[in-house]
Every structure is written in structure tokens, then in C-alpha cells.
């Protein structure tokens, strides 16, 4: 069943993150000794062309830091990020302009990323100008196309950000991400600030765009309902590490790691009330013999302490979980 959804191994991933570490020094404690926060601790991820991969976890788990590192906005302490075959950091890394054409990001609150004194048309045509589209007519044309793609009208280009509703602003945020024609879009909590009906419209739009333009998404979210609905693959992050990863069906129908199970259990779900059979979690599987699921989820790792070694093991066709031997 799941074999059919597996990407063909031959295809080159559009994004690959290899052993990403991001550490922040923090001053504090007695004698102001410097301590290190391991915000991201050995994350591996791959997004195949046309896929939507979701990174799930709670505030502070490191998922947004991972997103920023992928966008070139947060230098990693170690590890590699490769977008369309090109490393984002280190020798041979593309400059800012080139990077902007490879990957774009959509934030939770698009209003905070828009200049209130600039029309939408100007905000959308500026990247084109910077990227050498000299012909004014072509710029106007491409802005109109982007606005239409996200379900707005070309006339909207003359309006200012405050004239739009929350849902429309998120559409503008998506249009801004699309304007340079990237193939990879990072979606950082794209719908969590929106009402149910608007959320449904934006999710539908994102799914349509993915199909029509062949986009690949890395979605950062804590909304498991949305994640299950749109993702091909899911990675669950806890305390800077991916603790479970696999196809959406594997992760949602047979969650193994205690943290994944807790996330799914704690989601308030109307199906629980109506007694939907799909709501009942299958019994927790045993970790592979001689190991235990890692890290333990009831104690947060101490700040400044390097995490203990653990391994990622296969527990199914397309399903891996973090355990510790012994």
C-alpha cells in the first residue's frame, strides 16, 4: 500500500538537509558562564520535487530555526543544506539574489512582512526589478498573473495592505513568494492565524498551486489536522531532533514515538465525540528489541547539555523512529 506513494529513489531531492545543527550561545546562570542551546540538533530532511513535507512540533522545538536556516537566514553551526543541488552555505553558495529564486517563504502573519505605505503592486514588482526585469509592462503583467494565481484581481495591485482581509493578506503573502518562480516554498504556519472558512480556502489554494505549478512545500505547522490533510511526508520534531518520520499514512495511522502519540491524542477532535473509528489510536508498538524510544518526553533536556547519542531506525516500509540502544 505504502510502496506506491514512495518517491522513486532515482529522483534528486529539491531540498535536502543533512545533519543540521544550530546552536545559540546564551549568557546566564552563576558567574555568567556561557551556555549553549542546541536549538536544532542533527536534523535530516529531504523534499522530493512536487512533494509536501511537513515538520511538526510545538513552540521551541526548533522547527522555525530549521526553516530559517533553509532560507539562508540563520547560519547553521554545522551540517549541509542543499537546494536544487546547490549548497545554501559554504563555498559555492549562491548569493542572496540567486537564493531568492530557489526558495521562498510564506510566514504566519503576512501583514507584518508588508510595508504599510507601499501598494501591493509595488511590493510584488520590486523583487522583479531587483532580478533584472527591466520592462515595466512585463512587470505589471507578471504581478497581474501572480495575483490571479492566488485568487485575487489585477486591480488589487493599486491597493495598500490595510485594505485587505486576513485571508486576502495571506494570498498576497503567497503571491509574493511565487513572483520569482521558485520551485520550493517553505510555509511557516501558513494558516494558523486564520478562521476555519478562510483556512479551508488557503489550504485549497496551496494544494491547487502545488499541482498547477509543480511546487514543492516544506510546511512548518503545529496543526495536525492540516498536516495530515496536505502532506506527503511528515517529520515530528521534539527538542531539536526529529523523533519520527515517514509517509503521512504511516505516521498518522501507526504513530510509534510517545511524543507523536501524545500530539495526536491531545488534539481536540470532534471525531472523538462522534465515535469515529478512525480516531482511536492503535496500541503503542514496542521499540525494536534492546532499544527504547528516545528522547524521553517527560523531561525537557537541560539547557547547555549536549544531547545524548541516539539512532534513527526503520520500523516499517516508510517509517522511522528515534531510539536509544540499551
Amino acid at each position: 500500500m505504502s510502496a506506491a506513494t514512495l518517491p522513486s529513489p532515482a529522483s534528486e531531492p529539491i531540498l535536502s538537509v543533512k545533519d543540521l545543527h544550530v546552536r545559540f550561545p546564551v549568557a546566564g546562570g552563576l558567574l555568567r558562564q556561557r551556555r549553549i542551546v542546541h536549538a536544532v540538533n542533527g536534523v535530516d530532511l529531504a523534499v522530493q520535487p512536487g512533494q509536501c513535507v511537513s515538520l511538526v512540533g510545538e513552540s521551541g522545538c526548533g522547527k522555525s530555526t530549521t526553516a530559517l536556516a533553509i532560507m539562508g537566514l540563520q547560519a547553521p553551526s554545522s551540517g549541509a543544506i542543499i537546494v536544487e543541488g546547490r549548497p545554501v552555505y559554504g563555498p559555492g553558495a549562491p548569493d542572496r539574489l540567486a537564493r531568492a529564486r530557489l526558495a521562498q517563504i510564506v510566514f504566519q502573519d503576512p501583514f507584518s512582512t508588508l510595508n504599510p505605505r507601499e501598494t501591493i503592486g509595488r511590493a510584488l514588482s520590486q523583487p522583479l526589478m531587483l532580478h533584472g526585469v527591466k520592462d515595466r509592462c512585463e512587470r505589471v503583467d507578471r504581478v497581474a498573473t501572480a495575483l490571479r494565481q492566488v485568487g485575487l484581481l489585477p486591480e488589487h495591485a493599486t491597493r495598500y495592505p490595510h485594505e485587505f482581509s486576513g485571508g486576502q493578506r495571506q494570498r498576497i503573502g503567497i503571491a509574493r513568494a511565487l513572483i520569482l518562480g521558485p520551485r520550493l516554498i517553505v510555509l511557516d504556519e501558513p494558516v494558523s492565524a486564520l478562521d476555519v472558512s478562510i483556512r479551508a480556502q488557503i489550504i485549497n489554494l496551496l494544494m491547487d498551486l502545488q499541482q498547477d505549478l509543480g511546487l514543492s512545500y516544506l510546511m512548518i505547522s503545529h496543526d495536525l489536522g492540516v498536516v495530515e490533510h496536505v502532506s506527503d511526508r511528515v517529520a515530528v520534531m521534539f527538542a531539536g531532533q526529529i523523533v519520527e518520520e515517514g509517509g503521512w499514512r504511516e505516521v498518522f495511522t501507526a504513530p510509534a514515538h510517545p511524543y507523536t502519540r501524545r500530539l495526536i491524542e491531545t488534539i481536540p477532535n470532534p471525531a472523538r465525540l462522534t465515535g469515529g473509528a478512525q480516531d482511536i489510536l492503535p496500541p503503542a508498538p514496542e521499540p525494536p528489541s534492546g532499544t527504547r524510544f528516545w528522547p524521553p518526553i517527560d523531561q525537557r533536556p537541560e539547557i547547555g547539555r549536549p544531547p545524548e547519542p541516539s539512532t534513527f531506525v526503520d520500523i516499517g516500509d516508510d517509517h522511522r523512529v528515534r531510539v536509544r540502544v540499551g
Binding site: 476555519v196 472558512s197 489536522g225 499514512r249 477532535n269 478512525q278
Partner: peptide
């Protein structure tokens, strides 16, 4: 309009209302 956990296995990746 609500993407409900557990619904995809039953209904597929459908458009939301």
C-alpha cells in the same frame, strides 16, 4: 471546512468545503 484528523484515510486528499 475543517481538516479533521483521521479523515484523509477515509476521504482522501479532497478539497475542503
Amino acid at each position: 471546512a475543517l481538516p479533521r484528523l483521521g479523515s484523509r484515510a477515509v476521504e482522501g486528499r479532497h478539497r475542503l468545503a
